[in-house]
Design a protein around this nucleic acid. Structure first.
Lengths: 187, 187
DNA sequence: TTCTATAATAAATAAGCATTCACTTATAGT
DNA sequence: ACTATAAGTGAATGCTTATTTATTATAGAA
């Protein structure tokens, strides 16, 4: 019994993410994905039941990644300030390091017709749980997790998108954001 | 010389926005758009040079609308608190009232391959100018406009998406957000 | 080594796509 | 009422799409 070649599957995933970043969803056909991954179009169907299935599976694999990345940088003994500093800066670092994945996930989740059929993300649940812990410890103010999540991460995302490449402006904005969040979110 | 029927063009626009909300970009073909609008596929090409042109033109028409809507609700004599209250609540009302348009614009602008070719939005420029005015008047703290913009509007968007339909939770979150922003943004 | 299950593929298929074309219809100006 | 002009259309075009099929190559078990 011959085994599936996991390297081929990985190549397919990376091809999907690359092509969708470069040309959007309508620019990522099975034929192009297969060519980019160095396999035959039919091979894609050995690893995935359909194109929709493929996109959903890849999305679900990567959607949470950013949150696990961030939580991995957090230390239990950190002060409130360094927690916020770490959350903001590691989110920013993730966007830079995993630009393709980040854009793929963003694009996918902003399309109602695609993300409607996806399971709720585990990573987001974990982050909310983390916020709840901080509230119990008396570090974080009792603010709705949706609000905390948005002013923390969406703002970093906007800074990154707006000041793309402009190191000075980006760093200044991140520092200002951290100061602002320290005053706003911490007890 | 026969004139173009602007009602037909309007029908086409609405069909595009409706279909893209329901089925995403890949679900909005010229054939479907034409059927939805009650015209022939060929008629679309009387009003637009190509499909890409059409999408771009519709995007550029609506991308700014939310900002003009909000600025229209603002009064020169408003206090800092009622400014924030108005900004937050009118943004929320816009998403509710113009749900289709809002999702179309969101989806379009999160696709790099589409929005890359679009002109910078006038509406966003106007809002930034408005923030600058408030800073000069000593109402708003001297915070980067990208940050102000994001914590104001992205947070409202997240609340709306997360608590879709749940009136109580939504209202509570909006009120909490307004309190938080009053303390954070105002001098 | 042989057999077998399945990975892998090139080519075929059928549907859908954006766009064009040949043609009809409506209308504004004369 | 007539004519020129452009709106409007159904059908055709040629291409791309996701997916299937028939076939071959390969790896593990016997």
């Amino acid at each position: 019994m011959r085994k599936k070649n996991q390297e081929k599957k990985e190549n397919i995933k990376q091809a999907v993410i690359k092509l969708i970043l470069e040309a959007g969803f309508h620019g990522a056909s099975i034929a192009k994905i297969a060519r980019e991954a160095g396999v035959s179009p039919a091979t894609v169907y050995i690893y995935y039941a359909s194109k929709d299935d493929m996109l959903r599976e890849i999305y679900e694999e990567y959607a949470d990644q950013v949150y696990f990345y961030i939580l991995g940088k957090i230390d239990q003994n950190m002060s409130g300030r360094s927690l916020i500093d770490t959350l903001v800066r590691s989110y920013y670092r993730y966007i830079n390091e995993e630009e393709r994945v980040f854009h793929f996930v963003e694009q996918f989740s902003s399309c109602p017709s695609l993300s409607a059929n996806c399971r709720e993300t585990e990573g987001c649940f974990r982050i909310f749980q983390f916020f709840d812990d901080l509230k119990e410890k008396g570090i974080l103010k009792d603010i709705d997790n949706v609000i905390v999540h948005s002013i923390l991460f969406n703002t970093v995302k906007c800074i990154r998108l707006r000041y793309e490449g402009e190191q000075d402006k980006t760093q200044a904005a991140l520092e200002q954001l951290i100061e602002l969040l320290v005053e706003t979110l911490l007890l």
